[in-house]
């Protein structure tokens, strides 16, 4: 049994690495898209223009209130079913684009609520102090509120971002060739290996290792910002 494991390992390892690369790509693309989009959505939900905040709040409710897996399916298949055209492009690239869009929208809505909490948690007196010193609204946000907001949201954001690491596995539902897909392929049969369940188990090592790195990174960020209190 050990001999067979040693024989399978290099093949499985190489495949899982390829899958993990796709997982990492989805993770970083989601962050790059969702971090700024979330801020825009947060401002939308806090807008004093009622129709805008109502629309944004409804979108947040839909996105947070339904499973990401369903959102992936709808986003990927719906355009093709209704308009008869695949807007996402062919093959793996198309699946990756669709998955990225679904993840960015989904995570932006969660981030938006965290941002909103962070912004509204900054005492009103901070903005007032900025205002009487002659700063305009933009300067108040970027020079005063932003840094205090970031400090406040590091713990909830690290939570959400570590969840994202594992949530990328949901893209398996539209057959994106990420880590879970790669592990599962040896169950169905691939490269002469079939019925092997251990590669699936082994994928957990990747997720654990990656979230360990993120955990260290976030505690470093927290430490770096400990020079001031909010």
């Amino acid at each position: 049994m050990i001999a067979r494991f040693l024989e399978q390992f290099p093949i499985v390892f190489a495949s899982l690495n390829v899958g993990f690369l796709q997982t990492l790509k989805l993770f970083f693309v989601t962050l790059v898209g969702a971090l700024p989009l979330g801020l825009i959505i947060a401002f939308g939900s806090m807008s004093s223009f009622k129709p805008l905040s109502a629309v944004v709040k409804t979108v947040i409710w839909i996105v947070r209130g339904s499973p990401l897996m369903i959102q992936l399916l709808i986003l990927y298949y719906f355009p093709g079913l209704v308009f008869g055209a695949n807007i996402w492009g062919q093959g793996e690239t198309g699946r990756f684009v669709a998955a990225s869009v679904a993840f960015i929208i989904n995570y932006a809505c969660y981030f938006a609520e965290i941002y909103r909490g962070g912004i509204q948690g900054v005492p009103k007196g901070q903005a007032e102090a900025g205002q009487v010193l002659g700063l305009n609204k933009r300067q108040v946000f970027f020079k005063i509120t932003l840094m205090q907001m970031i400090k406040r949201i590091v713990p909830p954001m690290s939570n959400e971002i570590i969840t994202l690491v594992k949530d990328t596995s949901l893209a398996r539902i539209i057959a994106l060739q990420e880590l879970i897909w790669a592990g599962q392929s040896f169950l169905k049969g691939s490269q002469g290996i079939a019925g092997a369940i251990w590669p699936m188990f082994f994928t957990a090592v990747y997720y654990l290792a990656f979230s360990a790195i993120l955990t260290v990174l976030f505690s470093k960020i927290e430490k770096k910002m400990s020079y001031f209190k909010v």
């Binding site: 005492p123 007196g125 901070q126 020079k143 205090q148 909010v230």
Partner: peptide, 21 residues
Amino acid sequence: QFNLFPQYSVLGNLTLAPRLA
């Protein structure tokens, strides 16, 4: 309540607005 900007040093609190102006 003072409303100093916590992320800036004392000097930073004093110079922020004049620098922007």
